[in-house]
Amino acid sequence: MNDDLTMQEASESANMTDSAPTDMASEASTPKMTARNVNVFYGDKQAINDVSIDVNMDNVTAFIGPSGCGKSTFLRCMNRMNDTIPIARVTGDIQLDGDDIYAPKMDVVQLRARVGMVFQKPNPFPKSIYDNIAYGPRIHGLATGKEELDNIVESSLQRAGLWGEVKDRLHDSGTALSGGQQQRLCIARAIAVDPEVILMDEPCSALDPIATAKIEELIHELRGKYAIVIVTHNMQQAARVSQKTAFFHLGTLVEYGETTDIFTNPREEKTRDYITGRYG
């Protein structure tokens, strides 16, 4: 595979979509997060090869690709969760509102509050539902009193579409909820710290179809309020929830563009093969 060519095409396609007239063009020209020439190494092994991508406020961006193609790795670079892996090394430039997130003066703790994350497996804290949501606002000092904290908890749960189901048992354990409810609790927990970007790493892969539908509905509702990036194995899901889609293969970004284009009229043969189910 010719990496240079792929890179070039990828950035071309990114540029194309940036300048292309879209129905939500207002903020499309000022991306929330930009990544340029990002490489990630695990020890000697290169996991991400020269990826450049923009994430917009008004769009849900989906990362698709076969297993091990680096989409989750790249996602975890965007809020520096890869820092927890000692052998991981990131080069290149990732910016949030024009600030380099790998710059020494960037505070990782604040970055992760601004760029929230929802994980593959629902991972509520073994605490009450209320404490799960209230934890983030508490450690960041977002609420000045009990009442304000109550409001944050309620509004976060409402946005996550969970309020009606749990409002009478806020002090029950978060781990007693069903899998889908737990995942929505995790989304509510991410929302509670008032992030600007929400990264979702295959949020539905551990859920049944009904719970998945609820999460997808939720993603639709959250769109526009937060820049959302979702990694998914499920191409139908990417088609349903996203406006932009990036196709990763073997650590490179093969194609990035409007979701409708990627699924109906891919430019790359690899993308077409993957979309049509020839591999992956």
Binding site: M81, T84, V109, M117, P124, F125, Y135, H140, A192
Partner: peptide, 27 residues
């Protein structure tokens, strides 16, 4: 202590010290 709990706390912006004393130690 499951690593997912550490990730969850880090993911909403808990500092390593907060992760240890709020989550890892109690568990």
């Amino acid at each position: 202590v499951p690593p997912s709990i550490r990730e969850a706390a880090l993911g909403i912006g808990a500092s390593p010290l907060q992760v240890v004393f709020h989550h890892v130690l109690p568990l």
